[in-house]
Amino acid sequence: MENKENNSSPASLKDLPIGYQFPSVSYELTESVVAKYLSAVGGQQDFLKSGIVPPLAIAACAITALSQSFAVPPGSIHASQELEFLKIVPVGSTISCGGRIAHRLERGRLNLMSIEISALNQDEEEVLTGKATIAIPS
C-alpha cells in the first residue's frame, strides 16, 4: 500500500469516544500493490488482466490506513467485519478513507469497539463502506 498521508501521535483505540472521526487518509492502489496482494491471496489473476482492484484489497488497505491514526492495545482481536462494495475500482486509483467510532460495548473482560469505514475514489464517489469490530482486553 502506498500511503499519501501520515498521521502522527496516535491515541489508544481504547480511549476514543463514540463519534470520534478519524482523520481522512489516502492511498494509491498501484499495479504493484495489487500484484503483491494477488500473490499473497493466490489466484484471482483475472483482476490484473481486467485492471480491477479486488474489493478485499481496497478494504484491507483502508483498515490499515485508518489504523495508523490510533494505537491498537496488545491482545486486541479483529472480531467481525461488515463490507459493502459499491463501485468497481480500477488499478491505479487513489482512495480516500475515513472512519468513525460507531459503538463501544463492554462485555466481560473485553471492550468491543466498532469502527465505520467509508472509502471514496478520486471523483469522491463512495466505493466501499464497512464496519470493523475490534475486541480489546480491558
Binding site: 474489493p55 467481525s80 467485519q81 463490507l83 459493502e84 462494495f85
Partner: peptide
C-alpha cells in the same frame, strides 16, 4: 459481487 456485494462475517 464487485459492485454491489455485501458481506458480514465473524472471525
Amino acid at each position: 459481487w464487485l459492485d454491489g456485494g455485501r458481506l458480514s462475517v465473524r472471525f
